[in-house]
Design a protein around this nucleic acid. Sequence first.
DNA 1: AATTCTATCAACCGCAGCGCT
DNA 2: AAGCGCTGCGGTTGATAGAAT
Length: 556
Amino acid sequence: MINQRYSSRKMSNMTSESVDVITSRDCVTSPSVDEVSTERNMVGNGTLKKGPWTSAEDAILVDYVNRHGEGNWNAVQKHSGLSRCGKSCRLRWANHLRPDLRKGAFTPEEECRIIELHAKMGNKWARMAVELPGRTDNEIKNFWNTRTKRRQRAGLPIYPHDICFQTNDNAQPQNMVTFDTSHAEMLPDDTFQIPAVEFKNLELNQEFYVPNILDLPGGSLFDLPGGSLIPDGLGSTSCNDSFHFPVPKRVRRSDSYPVFDGDPNEYFPAVNQSFEISSSYDQNLNGGDIPSSSSCLFSGSHAYFNGNTSSSEPISWPQKMELPSLQFSTQMGSCNAAPSSPLPSLESVDTLIQQSMLIGQTKSDSDSGLLDAVLLQSQNLRMSESNNNSNASVVPCDIPTDSSSQPDDWEAYDGDPMSPLGNSAASVLSEYTPHLSGSPLDEHQSIEAISVKHEAEEFGAKQSDREDEKSNHINCSRPDYLLDPPSWFGSSSNTAAYGNKDHCLVSDPIHALRDDDFCSDSDRHISGSPPFEGLHFESAGKWDDISEICRGPGNR
DNA sequence: AATTCTATCAACCGCAGCGCT
DNA sequence: AAGCGCTGCGGTTGATAGAAT
């Protein structure tokens, strides 16, 4: 059915192009729609055309590329007579005229693959396109955005629970990225946990995404001192003492990652000086005991610290220390986000998350409303989680057993906002603005859409049971409070709610993501975990509403 | 039948990285 | 080292078709 829709759309495009051809200057004497459009789309001095391409233009471009090959796109305009800028030519060729393009709707396998890749890479469309031969980054991006919007409307999480977390016990997955403990002295505290995650059922063909070293997403790989971050799947687990950091924002195929050999304090002194990397990436590669250390297994061959979904910023520590311009009031009721959107940009939130994930912030640093938003999200999740924890199927990761951790340390960020496979949860956060009361699901015909509909129906049935949870929301107008570990964890006794002495639950947002929306119902609920029940805000999904919920009756 | 809503697609824009001079 | 141009990437927007009301 999606194929039908797609085909229909393609037909419309063809029709449009046909009209373009028919009404082109060569064919008609009177001004055509195309001509009018062309005139309107002339840029600046009138030499460059914008807007939809005509078949004639396509033919010119194809002919040019066939003669001269790809590249040197600016020369196309110069030599072929096309009134198109080089960028436009490149885009047209890459997205529509390339002979190796695979036309048609995404297959279920491809859809699953995209979900998997997104969980691993974030919004690295180009990287994802490499993994999906014949597909363009634009296609993938459009698919994902549509999917995201659809699920947002349905009040469902982005990722299926198939993307789940795994205990970092002895059964370390082959493609887990690990940190060794040989340089623990460089990271004195043990407060940063990153959940071990892996796909369990997403490998449609039993393939793990085991990228080569160049296949790591830019800005996402964070190699820690002394620890080899070369995925096991690459056959190297040696601790080479190299410090890979940061990776370039955009990695071209021929790029290699810079290697930093030396003291990380030299590399990002501001971080250590100002924020205290209170993270210990102590990693027992073999799953042994790690007293008072967090064990960090990174998923999917990648160690994502920012695993950015939308931020295109490279991990530049000094830059990341700065809060994004987008800010919320402490009430979260107002924000200075893009005026067109009631939500903060994902990038901005991502930036915050990256900062938050990477930096042990002091309370004084916590006044950002953005941070509040993220923390609130996690807090809400935790609250809801605690209400359901008796049945919660959790996949623990090692956490520090020392309950006397510094109050500002990374325990406060147990609510890891990262996506299942490292992708920042900012986009996830944006997902949870459900409009449960309205907007019937669209009859999008993809398996994905069907799944969404099914889930939404199930989800809707649960809503009435959750109204009382509203009162549990903390006062989000107090950023400091949000960062206060006791409140963040609820209380020390809440450890039981989230994990036992030796383990903690994976971060709630991530846990939340285990709610399945995967492409195949047969794959669903494999982990036995209950559907996520805490993440969705009961009221309409706007920030003001969230703020309202947060204030709650007892928190004003 | 008209209007509104939603999904989809195509294209543009700004930014950043890279190589060359 | 700096400037410049080219290229690629990711975010965003506008147009359109189909579905829903």
